[in-house]
Design a protein around this nucleic acid. Sequence first.
DNA 1: AGGCAATAGATGCAATTGCATCAAGCTTGA
DNA 2: TCAAGCTTGATGCAATTGCATCTATTGCCT
Lengths: 153, 153
Amino acid sequence: MTKKATPSPEAIKAWARLMRVSRQLMESAEDALKESSLPPLAWYDVLHELAEAGEGGLRPFQLIERTLFAQYNISRLLARLEADGLIEKLPVADDGRGQTIRISAKGREMRRQMWAVYGRSITELVDAKLSADELTMVSALLGRLRHPPVVDW
Amino acid sequence: MTKKATPSPEAIKAWARLMRVSRQLMESAEDALKESSLPPLAWYDVLHELAEAGEGGLRPFQLIERTLFAQYNISRLLARLEADGLIEKLPVADDGRGQTIRISAKGREMRRQMWAVYGRSITELVDAKLSADELTMVSALLGRLRHPPVVDW
DNA sequence: AGGCAATAGATGCAATTGCATCAAGCTTGA
DNA sequence: TCAAGCTTGATGCAATTGCATCTATTGCCT
């Protein structure tokens, strides 16, 4: 008798839900930003990390670790953010290859504006639908699906 | 005193987990397909719907409802699938605008091959990490996050 | 019938993504 | 010390996505 490698029905359903719900929610949030003429979510992710990093800033490769974006993606995203004056690129003293990315005042302001809209989306899409306990449960379960190299999120 | 519209910490965490985990899992699955020189997941989604629909096929707008892809996206995806001989486009008798999309034998075979890899990913990424009960719980909780116009999935 | 809004699908063009590769600067080991 | 290899970040080019718009029908209303 040969081994059946097909996933369980429960796994298939959970996978399908995960893919669909996440896409749907992400789109809703993106739409809300667009309606407010704000940049896409990816910008928020980066501005958020940079804001948390403070004055010391972050190196691009650190942003890659934190956001899970591809290297070329970050490279170009940073170029756009810089063109919009939301970040500054500074040379690094002890590594001639690298740069340090620091959020600018304008960048902080943009992050604030985006959060006003983004946060509202989260409230409506998530907070309004599940209780705190249920949300904690979701986080715990999803946390177990993370891939090995988990940092801390 | 003004109302603070910020979502709860639980909601923020659940949102973050959802976005990150779903992206990570999706990428893993895509990578597995690429390693096997198979087409991207989007192709699977469409082939899957068409296979379930059987000989009667589906209209493009029905695929849009089922897969949540944008209209122009489906339009072009179908063009690529047709170019690869995985589907057929047939005229519709009672609606001169429309077409019916039917999966071809080659399309069924491709779906089968993709499932061999995709299913394995789901097994490894999901089945191996959570019990059936936990998966059912995940599905139930995520289900509550779906947007109103839910069909049946 | 005749016009007018709505629906189904395609498409031109700009922006973004993905892939592969590159250049420049570090690091290490013989 | 210096060549080989690794890391950091950028970039040319092709494929895909997003947006806006277009064409062809169809359905509806008078």
